[in-house]
């Protein structure tokens, strides 16, 4: 009787403890990564390689996401604005919405799907096929050789991807605004430029850097801790994407709170 009644409590307790343990392990891993960023040897070729894979090759995904989102945003703001004769806010709200929120968040989530998964699968496979052990025996620290270049590359590329996404998103809004909603092109552009402030853009880029770091750290962490066998790698990949996505959304809330709450 009592056992059955306390079982849900035990489950909650176990889950909370497990979660706290995981947060601690990730924090330690992240701290170790930072330590290795600062101390040589560095592997610049690996960094370049990762910039190409994480940054450059994510451009189409991030660009397309932003284009459609910007367009849909314009339609929604127009529909909402027209309820109190405020259709004219479309250009400025599209710009602010893209730069502050949707650019970084959607960019981060798309990159989480693409990059965290790829990193976790690659490093997880290396782990289960003893390639990580082989690296160590060849006097190469896997943290420096695998983790640091990926974390740096993602942290540096995401702000750039966000900037591109912001621009394409605003352009998406412009396309819909001028072709479907009857805005005058020159007025649309002027409205966008007049109301957009530097901080709107910069805050989004800072978010992007944080999200990039989250994506790569989660990918590497789960890959390095992959269990054995193909199933282990599959699980690591899933965990990397899910945890990166949730952490991005949580971090986004906290950053928004820190940046914009009066």
């Amino acid at each position: 009787m009592i056992r059955a009644a306390t079982r849900p409590l035990a489950f909650v307790g176990r889950t909370v403890l497990g979660l706290l343990g995981a947060i601690g392990r990730v924090a330690i891993y992240f701290g170790a990564t930072l330590g290795h960023v600062l101390r040589p040897p560095w592997y610049p070729r690996e960094l370049l390689h990762q910039l190409l894979h994480i940054g450059w090759l994510s451009l189409p995904v991030v660009g397309l996401t932003a284009l459609f989102t910007g367009g849909a945003l314009a339609l929604q703001i127009y529909a909402g604005g027209s309820r109190f004769n405020a259709e004219a806010v479309v250009p400025s709200i599209v710009a602010i919405g893209m730069t502050r929120e949707l650019g970084p968040v959607l960019g981060g989530l798309m990159v989480a799907g693409r990059v965290a998964a790829a990193i976790a699968a690659e490093i997880g496979t290396m782990k289960v096929t003893e390639q990580i052990d082989a690296l160590v025996t060849l006097s190469t620290n896997p943290m420096k050789y695998l983790t640091v270049p990926r974390v740096l590359a993602a942290t540096l590329s995401l702000p750039v991807l966000v900037a591109v996404g912001d621009s394409i998103g605003i352009f998406g809004g412009y396309l819909v605004g001028t072709t479907r909603l009857g805005f005058d092109p020159a007025t649309y552009i002027r409205n966008t430029a007049d109301y957009l402030e530097a901080w709107d853009v910069i805050s989004g880029l800072v978010k992007g850097a944080v999200f990039g770091c989250i994506v790569a750290v989660m990918g590497c962490y789960h890959g390095m801790n992959s269990e054995r066998g193909a199933r282990g790698v599959g699980r690591a990949t899933t965990r990397a994407v899910v945890s990166a996505s949730i952490l991005i959304l949580a971090a986004n809330y906290l950053l928004t709170e820190a940046f914009f709450s009066a």
Partner: peptide, 15 residues
């Protein structure tokens, strides 16, 4: 580690 060489069971070549 510089004194050691190791052939791993599965080869462990970097693919």
């Amino acid at each position: 580690l510089a004194r050691f060489g190791m052939l791993f069971q599965g080869g462990a070549l970097f693919d």
